[in-house]
Amino acid sequence: MEPILRVEHLTHTYGSGTPFERSAVQDLSFQVEAGEFLGVIGHTGSGKSTLIQHLNGLLRPTSGHIYLDGTDIWAKPKEIRQVRFQVGLVFQYPEYQLFEETVYRDIAFGPTNMGLTPEQVDRAVREAAAFAGLSEELLDKSPFELSGGQKRRVAIAGVIAMDPKVLILDEPTAGLDPEGRERLLANIRAYHQAKGNTILLVSHSMDEIARNVDRILVLKDAHVLMSGTPREVFARAEELESAGLDVPQVTRIARALRDRGLAIDPAVYTTEELTAALLALKKGGSAVC
């Protein structure tokens, strides 16, 4: 089956021809399968933001191609807006882009731009608000009266309302407290399950990525450093650390236990897994390998 997104040899150079010339992404190739929940990780300056702005056509590649459902998104540059409706992008701190008088109208901005009928817009707004965890009575309020966490949900609903095939979220939990973070991620997981569409989650937090995604794409210095399931990626913990990235704390504990002679898989990344492994080990009696 054709992958939903295919990136081929993507390069983007800022300030070409000046002394400040710099490639933010360099010869990047990867693909995303339909329905996949992909985590994208890399520290600031690794090319993450530049990459995601290419996926919905906000930036045009200096060279290389991006295929959405098998079609080059720049095949017809005049219709690039259609691509933006299909690949929804939620920026970092999206609450700062709210502008309408009511929550309802702000969420309706995207679907209205798509040219939907008022009935279709209404359905899209209500459905998106529900997915984002916003109750009905909030819809008539001004977005500026809401709490920080609620504002962010409004902004996310504004993108979900366009019913994109691919939803990209750039650091959706930045600045939220642990509970707010967990609740928002639960909403996103539920949305993914209900819709079965493709999600790209960009994050700085390995823990957050590890617990939510099917596959991880690790970027470093404008290149893909590695990609694979969380287990495959965390098995290469040393490489991650040398790239200046975190390894989940549980993985670090597992490695420390292995260093102490316990037969523990050093790539486990949830406390449940590690607890189960330790309990099994103790029962088996062969504590030292």
Binding site: N56, R84, G88, F91, N113, G158, M162
Partner: peptide, 8 residues
């Protein structure tokens, strides 16, 4: 960019 991403 954010508003363009919503079709502005």
């Amino acid at each position: 960019s954010a508003q363009k991403a919503r079709g502005a």
